[in-house]
Amino acid sequence: MVSAEFTEKANAVQNLTKKPTDDELLKLYGLYKQATVGDVNTTKPGVFDFKGKYKWEAWEALKGKSQADAEKEYIAYVNELLAKYAA
């Protein structure tokens, strides 16, 4: 179960005035999935599903990290992105 602050940050990141880089978005995705689901629980997408593969790999890289730690990292990372892209 995620905190209210996590939910607030997840909503805030949807409203950034500038789009983060692809690497930043992948890091956000991986932390979000690890915080909300835990370790990756799907098979790796096929070789031609580039976007799906990169997202899966970003999540897989966090395997073993607790959901609580991933949530804290996600909140801190969103704060960085808000400072960088919300102005």
Rank of each mutant, 00 (worst) to 15 (best):
A70W: 05
K84Y: 12
A70F: 01
G64L: 02
N41V: 10
L28F: 01
Y32F: 15
F50T: 12
K84T: 12
Y54E: 15
V13E: 05
L25E: 11
V47A: 13
E8K: 15
L16V: 07
D39K: 10
V37N: 11
A86W: 04
G30D: 11
K9W: 08
A83I: 06
K18Q: 15
E60P: 05
Y85T: 01
V2P: 09
T21N: 06
E5M: 00
N15E: 09
T43E: 13
F48S: 07
T17R: 13
D23A: 15
Y85D: 09
L31S: 08
A4E: 13
G64A: 01
K51F: 08
P45L: 01
K51I: 14
E71Q: 13
A86K: 14
P20H: 07
Y74C: 06
K27H: 11
V13K: 11
S66N: 09
A83K: 14
G64V: 07
E57Q: 12
E5H: 00
V37M: 07
V40G: 04
E60M: 13
K55W: 04
K27F: 05
N15Y: 10
K19T: 14
Q34I: 03
T43C: 02
D39R: 10
L82P: 03
A12Y: 04
A83Y: 01
A4R: 08
D69K: 02
Q34A: 04
K55N: 03
V37C: 03
T21K: 07
Y29H: 13
K18R: 14
K18I: 02
L16K: 11
W59E: 08
A58H: 10
L82I: 14
V13N: 02
L26C: 11
A35M: 07
K19I: 03
A4Q: 12
A10K: 14
Q34T: 04
K65P: 07
P20D: 07
W56T: 04
V2H: 01
G52S: 11
L82K: 14
Q34W: 08
F48V: 04
L62R: 06
L31C: 07
G52H: 10
Y32V: 04
E8R: 14
L26V: 09
T43I: 08
A10S: 14
E80N: 13
D69F: 03
M1H: 09
N11A: 15
K9Q: 11
T43F: 09
E60D: 14
T43P: 04
L81E: 10
A87W: 03
K9I: 08
V47W: 13
L28Q: 08
Y32I: 01
T36D: 08
L25I: 10
S66R: 10
E24Q: 15
N15W: 00
A76S: 12
E8H: 02
